[in-house]
């Protein structure tokens, strides 16, 4: 393209975002993951209402005479069977999906906000401040995160929740909703322990970006510091941040499942995929569907998120392929 025509229509360029999107669409597993996630999100958003409307079951509906309905195998009325309290597992899986996905998304958002802010300050200021800030991260890394979550939940859980969490729970779920405030606390507790890696990722990015010639060029043409950070640095760190965030969601969801297994997570009548699977394990030998359906749904979602994350990494950064 050396000889350029002097006239002609303005040609639309292909931004790196569009290029990345096209590379992503060529990746079968990533597309599969994306489609599954879209379907799954739609199902958990509208599904519970449809089930209630067609069959009358909700996640916490216990029939008047539960003995007749306990632990029934899958049927036309109960696609995934019922649990040992006689509740419809399909409705509970969809409702649990709301909480599991929300835990993943909100905790990742918290870790994103804290991690990106912390990491870009450390990286941009550099020097001694950076040194101190990153040592703090190192120290926090050394403490088992599960310990932090347990302590947070033990101290602030149930009746000790801070006022704003109680307020949030009351606004979302009605007055005095103890179970919900535990869940909200879980969102923040998980977010606050998973920002460490995000901070490292972002700091590394900022550190390598701030000495790039195009940042120097922006300074040379008089661009102020906020312009440099928001127009040049942040858009260029976004790729790795998105990738890392996509991979944080499943790891947070797994942690939540683990906490629910320990009895620290979601409390009945609320459910998450983790707590449903935990309930199901008890009856695995006699009523296997109580574990199989929540377990499969969760596994499918986790795989999809990982496929999408890997696909995004390959698409956004074609140079650093896995070995």
């Amino acid at each position: 393209m050396n000889e350029l025509p002097k006239t002609g229509k303005v040609e639309k360029g292909a931004s790196l975002w569009r290029d990345a999107w096209q590379r992503l669409l060529k990746n079968r597993l990533a597309v599969f993951g994306l489609v599954v996630l879209i379907l799954m999100s739609t199902a958990v958003i509208v599904g519970p209402a449809i089930i209630e409307w067609t069959t009358g079951y909700t996640y916490d509906f216990i029939p008047d005479d539960p003995t007749l309905y306990r632990s029934m195998p899958p049927s036309a009325a109960h696609w995934m069977g019922t649990d040992d309290a006689g509740r419809d597992i399909f409705a509970r899986v969809l409702q649990g999906g709301r909480i599991s996905l929300l835990v993943g998304i909100i905790s990742t958002a918290v870790s994103l906000i804290v991690g990106v802010t912390y990491g870009s300050i450390a990286g941009y200021l550099g020097g001694r401040i950076d040194n101190v800030m990153m040592r703090i991260v190192d120290i926090l890394y050394a403490i088992p995160y599960i310990l932090i979550v347990i302590v947070l939940l033990a101290v602030f859980g149930s009746s000790n929740s801070p006022a704003w969490i109680k307020w949030l729970a009351a606004t979302v779920g009605g007055e005095g909703n103890q179970g919900l405030s535990q869940i909200i606390l879980l969102f923040f507790a998980l977010g606050l322990v998973s920002w460490l890696t995000m901070a490292r990722v972002v700091r590394g990015q900022v550190l390598s970006l701030k000495n790039q010639d195009f940042i120097l060029a922006a300074r040379a043409t008089g661009v102020r510091v906020p312009g440099i950070i928001f127009r040049h640095i942040i858009p260029n760190t976004l790729g790795p941040v998105i990738v890392y965030a996509t991979l944080t969601v499943p790891s947070v969801m797994l942690t939540e499942a683990f906490l629910s297994y320990l009895g620290l997570g979601v409390q009945p009548p609320y459910a998450s995929w983790g707590s449903l699977a935990n309930d199901g394990i008890k009856n695995l030998a006699i009523y296997p569907w109580q574990l199989i359906f929540p377990g499969l749904t969760m596994a499918l979602t986790l795989f999809s998120l990982n496929f999408l994350g890997d696909g995004l990494r390959d698409a956004l950064d074609p140079q650093t392929r896995k070995f």
Partner: peptide
């Protein structure tokens, strides 16, 4: 440079 490339990257 041809101005028609103004929207290119």
């Amino acid at each position: 440079l041809s101005p028609k490339f103004i929207r290119r990257y």
